[in-house]
Computed example of a mutant assay.
Amino acid sequence: MPKRWTNVHGAYYYQVPKGLESAWDGKKKFRLGKTLPEAYKVWADRIGRTDNVRAVGDLLDRYALEVIPGKAPSTQTQNTASLKNIRTFFGTAPLSEVKPMHIYKYLDWRPAKTSGKREIEILSHAFTKAVEWGYIEKHPFAWQLRIESDAPRTRYVEDWEIVECLSIDSKRKKGSILAVQSYIRVKLLTGMRRGDLLRLSMSDLQDDGIHLTPNKTKKSTGKRVIIGWSEELREAVAMAKAARPVMIGPFLFCNRSGECYIDEATGRAGGWESLWRGFMARVLKETKVTERFTEHDLRAKCASDAETLAHAQALMTHADSRITDRIYRRKPEIVKPLR
Rank of each mutant, 00 (worst) to 15 (best):
D305K: 10
I86N: 03
I262S: 00
V289C: 08
D196A: 10
T114A: 05
D305Q: 13
V246S: 00
Q206K: 15
A23T: 14
V56I: 13
H102L: 09
I177C: 13
R87H: 09
P140A: 12
R172A: 02
R234F: 03
L189P: 07
A240H: 01
R146Y: 07
T154A: 13
E38Q: 13
W229G: 01
D208Q: 14
Y183S: 05
W160E: 04
R153L: 02
G70Y: 15
H311D: 07
L205Q: 02
D45V: 05
D325W: 01
P337Q: 03
R326N: 05
R193D: 12
I177K: 15
A265T: 13
P332Y: 01
E273T: 13
L20E: 14
E132I: 03
D108C: 07
E161Q: 14
G19P: 06
D204A: 15
E66C: 07
T290N: 02
R194Q: 14
E161M: 12
K99R: 15
R292I: 02
K18P: 00
L188V: 14
S203F: 07
L309P: 10
N255A: 11
R110G: 10
R339C: 06
L145Q: 12
F253R: 04
V131N: 07
T6Y: 02
L60C: 11
H139K: 05
V225M: 05
L32V: 11
W143M: 08
K27A: 15
R329K: 06
T75C: 05
A81Y: 08
I227W: 01
R234G: 01
R155A: 00
S170L: 09
R110W: 01
K18V: 14
L36H: 11
G249V: 05
V283W: 05
P17L: 02
W143C: 02
A238Y: 11
L60G: 02
G33I: 08
Q78V: 09
Q206C: 15
S230T: 15
I323E: 03
K171L: 15
S203A: 10
C260D: 06
S176M: 15
W276G: 07
L178N: 13
I168Y: 01
W109L: 06
S115T: 08
D297Q: 05
P245K: 02
S230F: 07
R87P: 05
L197M: 12
R330A: 08
R339E: 14
L36P: 13
R172K: 12
P17W: 15
P140W: 08
M202Q: 00
R277F: 00
I47V: 13
A306S: 14
G258D: 01
